[in-house]
């Protein structure tokens, strides 16, 4: 009987990271950016029923890029975490920070212990009463958390999307129309092709709403907003 080959931990981790990155790079991109009344999400998603952006709690939204089955599992776990916490304590005790930590733990454990890492990237946003209280988190496949400001992109061409967004940066926080235009432009620049509005999934966390702040922006509404 032959002994198994020795693989150094560095090599193992590197291989896993490469595998996960490859999987994520195949997927489309999702971008979220702050606007006057909250946070706008735009996802390159041709399906009108399989969502990539979703509500987690009153002021928290989730978005996942990469392998659908995997980020869907994380989305469900996030909703269970949030609803359980809100039921046990109080609605105001449910925070994106705690949720991001939980995701980080889960993804970190899976990355180091499982044979196959999750090929996903997670984006979490929470809005507060003012724009200073907006929190944006990006959680990578290995559990690393990034606390982002103003804008964040995940998925296949995240870096290209982000640099396209940065190029159009302005001093002031944009209104929803400008933000949507910027996001679409960034997705177009990154993919180097025209993006049609019905191939996009648009949603907002809108602090002017009463109660639950998450809302999907339907095609007609987005169209009216842009014209």
């Amino acid at each position: 009987m032959s002994l198994p080959f020795y693989v150094s931990p560095e090599q193992l981790m590197q291989d896993k990271a490469e595998y996960a990155k490859k999987g994520i790079a195949k997927g489309r991109s999702i971008v979220a950016m702050e606007y006057g009344d909250g946070v706008l999400f735009v996802a390159d998603n041709p399906s009108s029923s399989l969502f990539k952006i979703s509500e987690i709690y009153d002021t928290i939204a989730f978005s996942g890029a990469g392998k659908y089955s995997e980020f869907e599992r994380l989305r469900k776990a996030g909703i269970q975490h949030a609803d359980l916490k809100g039921f046990m304590y109080s609605r105001e005790d449910v925070t994106a920070r705690a949720l991001a930590n939980a995701y980080s733990q889960t993804l970190g454990t899976i990355f180091s212990q499982e044979l196959k890492p999750f090929e996903v990237e997670i984006l979490l946003a929470q809005i507060g009463n003012g724009s200073r209280e907006t929190e944006l988190y990006r959680i990578a496949f290995d559990g690393t958390i990034f606390h982002e400001k103003q804008r964040v992109a995940i998925g296949g061409r995240a870096d290209a999307v982000l640099s396209a967004l940065r190029a159009r940066d302005s001093e002031t926080v944009p209104d929803v129309k400008t933000a949507l235009t910027h996001c679409i432009h960034a997705l177009e620049t990154a993919t180097d092709q025209k993006v049609s509005l019905d191939g996009l999934e648009v949603a907002t966390l809108d602090r002017t709403r009463v109660g639950r702040k998450f809302r999907r922006v339907a095609f007609q509404e987005a169209n009216a907003l842009l014209s």
């Binding site: 979703s54 469900k76 039921f87």
Partner: peptide
């Protein structure tokens, strides 16, 4: 009543 409200919201969020 509280649990029922969470139940409905939970379903709505999970199933869309």
């Amino acid at each position: 009543a509280k649990l029922f409200a969470v139940e409905l919201e939970h379903y709505e969020k999970l199933d869309g």
